[in-house]
Design a protein around this nucleic acid. Structure first.
Length: 295
DNA sequence: CACTTGACCTGTCCGC
DNA sequence: TGCGGACAGGTCAAGT
């Protein structure tokens, strides 16, 4: 579930704590979660200082003084939670003191000791990972970053970029195209469903059959939905929390996601759940209709 | 090449 | 109450 708004919320939280801290040690309970060789860890991670916390799509990037960058993908159930050493940072009164104090727990995969605190990478389903790659040329050399589409919330992102990326995917469903990280970066299942509802487009509509008016609506909807979610701290279903262990509140405002059986806020018809692009998909069958095929 | 499906995992929920 | 199976969803590999 961590999609762009959740990852951005995590990044924002970590940015407060991580820069200028030195990595003292890194240990893991599941080798795939910390995919860094012993030699690289010893020479480029331990003793290096974190310079900043960045995000590209759903990926967290932390450049180090060693010339390497820590890359972290949360995939579905990943959490990055920071705990300061006692007497600093959050203070005794912060609302998730109990959650943070319980770490590590059985889903903790990586523990990174820092100068002034500890970073926990928790990941119930073990799909996420922490890697280390050279900062120089990272965006050209990393296979994932190299083909990642534009950042939808950048001011420089245009409808023309959105439209031309979609032209190459005209035979696939609009939902599959939105989830394709090479079309645009950061949209996952929640925001795909929410923005398709906002734009009144059925998720199984072929990209080539979506009218120009609706495509423009969708372009705006993606940005609106994700901006709103960032302002609400993201979406917390089961697992997601931010760097301080706080949940996000966006799902309270969701119109269709996980709302099957309840009334559509636009027309009152019942929201239903279908399958599209291999994923559970939530629509209002009255507001979102597949266009009738000609002939 | 365009596109879809299965694998990677664990925890939860549902039906019997 | 226990057990099997479906499901959750980001990305890559493998398949059509």
């Amino acid at each position: 579930m961590p999609e762009l708004p959740e990852v951005e919320t995590v990044r924002f939280g970590l940015q407060e704590f991580m820069p200028t801290q030195k990595v003292i040690s890194a240990t893991c309970d599941w080798p795939k979660s910390l995919a860094i060789s012993e030699a690289l860890m010893a020479s480029k991670l331990i003793g290096a200082t974190v310079q900043s916390v960045q995000r590209r799509g759903k990926l967290i990037i932390m450049p180090l003084s060693s010339g390497y960058s820590i890359l972290i993908h949360l995939k579905m159930t990943g959490q990055l939670v920071y705990r300061p050493k006692s007497g600093r940072g959050f203070g005794g009164g912060h609302p998730n003191a109990s959650l943070v104090d319980k770490l590590p727990d059985k889903s903790t995969r990586v523990i990174m000791e820092l100068t002034r605190g500890t970073l926990f990478f928790n990941d119930q389903r073990k799909f996420g990972w922490v890697k280390l790659e050279p900062s120089d040329g990272l965006y050209q050399n990393n296979a994932f970053l190299k083909k990642l589409g534009p950042e939808p919330l950048e001011d420089s992102y245009t409808f023309e970029q959105f439209g031309s990326a979609l032209k190459k995917r005209s035979k696939t469903s609009i939902k599959a195209a939105l989830l394709d990280q090479t079309v645009l970066a950061g949209v996952g299942n929640i925001y795909a469903d929410e923005s398709l509802f906002m734009a009144r487009i059925h998720p199984l509509t072929k990209v080539g059959d979506v009218s120009a008016v609706k495509l423009k609506r969708l372009f705006n909807a993606v940005r609106e939905v994700m901006s709103l979610s960032i302002s609400l701290g993201g979406s917390s279903d089961r697992n997601y929390v931010d760097a301080k262990g706080n949940k996000g509140s966006y799902l309270k405002f969701a119109q269709v996601f996980r709302k099957e059986g309840s009334a559509c806020p636009n027309c009152g018809h019942k929201i239903i759940k279908i399958r599209a692009a291999g994923r559970g998909t939530h629509i209002c069958p009255h507001c979102q209709k597949v266009p009738k095929l000609a002939g």
